[in-house]
């Protein structure tokens, strides 16, 4: 292999999917490598592959085993596809990947939208203003999407804000809520149950089937949160309708 794929391993995920895993931590560098491999394998148009699902340090590859039916029955579809993927990856020259598009996401951090902001600040022994400042300082990368259509996991969250999920999840979190849990911050694309700490809300719609591009963000895109007032929030929200 040309690219450094040390620590790469494969394992079955049942009889219709497999997992590719990179060793090491699930940090920004690993996430980017997984994305590079996903992009590369996507271009290879491997027979029977239905979905490539990147997460932090793994790539789920869903496939139709019927596409790999072996006439003499010596090799299972899994073994054949695995061989094909390993062969293809020898052609992967580099794990370097251009940065994704950069988006500015307006967020209102006022109490009425960031329900957990005050309690989070208290837990972290920080003034609320500083929590906001820390949260909107970095350029985040969309690490993966999951949990619900369009739910983005963004990293890397500043260490000072890292906190476990709420003990009791809420039955309903409003659409657009910007929240933190563990090493991530995320945005709820719709009204959903959820256990993350809500720090604010964006008027943007992350998943909208009426649009040509129903999903606003994809894995690898970069996001910067821009604080807005409640008045501005309502203005933007109104403009949407």
């Amino acid at each position: 292999m040309n690219a450094d794929l040390a620590g790469l391993s494969f394992s079955p995920l049942g009889d219709r999917a497999l997992l590719l895993e990179l060793g090491g931590d699930a940090g920004a560098a690993t996430v980017k490598q997984i994305r590079a491999i996903a992009a590369f394998l996507s271009e290879q148009s491997l027979a029977g592959v239905l979905d490539l699902v990147p997460s932090l340090n793994t790539l789920g590859i869903h496939y139709d085993p019927e596409a790999w039916r072996d006439a003499n029955g010596k090799q299972s579809p899994y073994e054949q596809l695995l061989q094909k993927i390993q062969d293809a990856l020898t052609g992967l020259a580099s794990l370097e990947l251009a940065d994704g598009d950069l988006y500015e996401v307006p967020v209102c951090y006022d109490d009425e939208y960031g329900e957990d902001l005050v309690s989070l600040a208290r837990t972290k022994s920080l003034p609320v203003e500083q929590v906001i400042e820390i949260h909107c300082a970095p350029v985040y990368t969309v690490y993966m999407l999951g949990f619900a259509p369009g739910f983005v996991y963004l990293g890397q969250l500043d260490d000072r804000l890292v906190t476990p999920r709420r003990d009791t999840p809420r039955a309903s979190v409003p659409a657009g809520s910007v929240a933190v849990a563990n090493e991530y911050t995320g945005i709820y694309p719709a009204q959903l149950p959820g256990g993350w700490h809500i720090v604010g809300r964006t008027p943007l719609q992350l998943f909208d089937l009426s649009q040509d591009r129903p999903l606003l963000f994809g894995a690898g895109d970069r996001i910067r949160f821009v604080p807005i007032s409640a008045g501005r929030f309502r203005e933007l929200e109104g403009a949407r309708q």
């Binding site: 995920l13 049942g14 999917a17 699930a26 997460s55 789920g60 993966m144 999951g146 949990f147 619900a148």
Partner: peptide, 29 residues
């Protein structure tokens, strides 16, 4: 564990020890 893709029929073991089999409307990860 680190979040990863799941499939139709994945048997998860949450901390309470009662397995859950993921079905058609399962989450993606």
């Amino acid at each position: 564990v680190a979040s990863a893709a799941v499939a139709f029929g994945t048997i998860q073991l949450p901390p309470d020890g009662s397995p859950i089999v993921l079905m058609a409307d399962r989450q993606t990860i």
